[in-house]
């Protein structure tokens, strides 16, 4: 992105395409990119990503900000632009501007136990934070870690190649759940909000970070609050239709707050004060 003009993207080249989901639809792919003009970002931020002549859309960063030689975005095929993105292959030219938005308050969370709960593609925007916190340089700033990853079926998990590594991290409990029983599945079955009572955590010390489809977030945050976790210590990241990413185009507001510049990360305490128009 040009420093003077936040609308001007710079070039990136696709280094690798990773097919994430294994279920019939195969609708999620991760794109590893090499940027002409690399930039720093914080977990939780997002980019505007273009295919020239097709259009632009919004994606959260999906790889650790500590990785400097490439960047990853995980894209679900849902409409016109994402369909075209899915047709791209190694060597294709794409365009990127950013980083935009606020980020997970990593400094404020220092000293906390962390409870990550994600549903489906919701794991993607959380991965930069997960990897950042697991980095040996930062790991001792945070307490115990619990991870509950949900997907519709066993084939719908993204980043499944990272799961073993994460599960073996010190002071970490790693759980998976799917919506309904499947052959050979020996982990949890059921929606995440029905499961948190099966995973003991320290109410005094825990910060929860939730990413996933809106109904999941709503049910889950209610469950956490009922359990006694204060809304100030429950964070999520929101999705709204976006065009500009810089607070001008008028698309993404919830009341007077703009998800592109005031978000996408909000605490449940903040969301409680906003109109529920999202």
């Amino acid at each position: 992105m040009s420093l003077q003009n936040p609308y001007l993207p710079s070039r990136a080249v696709i280094m690798e395409v990773i097919q994430e989901t294994k279920s019939e639809t195969q609708d999620v792919k991760t794109f590893r990119l090499k940027l002409d003009e690399p930039f720093d970002y914080r977990p939780g931020q997002f980019v505007e990503f273009s295919v020239a002549g097709i259009g632009e859309c919004t994606f959260g960063f999906a790889s650790s900000p500590l990785i400097k030689d490439h960047m990853e975005l995980t894209v679900k095929r849902t409409g016109y632009v994402t369909e075209n993105i899915h047709m791209l292959s190694e060597g294709s030219t794409v365009w990127i501007r950013g980083p935009f938005g606020n980020s997970f308050p990593l400094e404020k969370m220092e000293g906390s136990d962390l409870f990550y709960v994600t549903g489906g593609l919701g794991l993607a925007p959380l991965r930069p934070m997960i990897d950042y916190v697991f980095d040996p340089a930062y790991r001792d700033r945070y307490g115990k870690i619990k991870m509950l990853m949900a997907a519709r079926t066993p084939g719908d998990f993204i980043f499944s190649y990272d799961f073993e590594k994460w599960a073996q991290m010190p002071d970490t409990e790693f759980y998976q759940t799917i919506d309904s029983p499947a052959e050979g599945w020996n982990q949890f079955v059921g929606f995440p909000h029905t499961l948190i009572e099966k995973i003991p955590f320290d109410l005094e010390k825990t910060t929860a970070v939730l990413c996933g489809p809106p109904p999941m977030i709503k049910a889950l945050s209610n469950a956490f609050v009922q359990y006694g976790l204060p809304p100030e210590r429950i964070y999520t990241t929101l999705e709204m239709r976006m065009t500009c990413g810089v607070g001008k185009c008028g698309k993404c507001n919830i009341g007077h707050r703009y998800v592109c510049i005031d978000g996408p990360v909000f605490s449940m305490a903040e969301l409680g004060e906003m109109p529920s128009e999202y």
Partner: peptide
């Protein structure tokens, strides 16, 4: 009022 959209189009190979 100032809401807007961004659209791409191609003409003679130029986007």
């Amino acid at each position: 009022c100032h809401c807007f959209n961004l659209r791409d189009s191609e003409k003679n190979g130029i986007v």
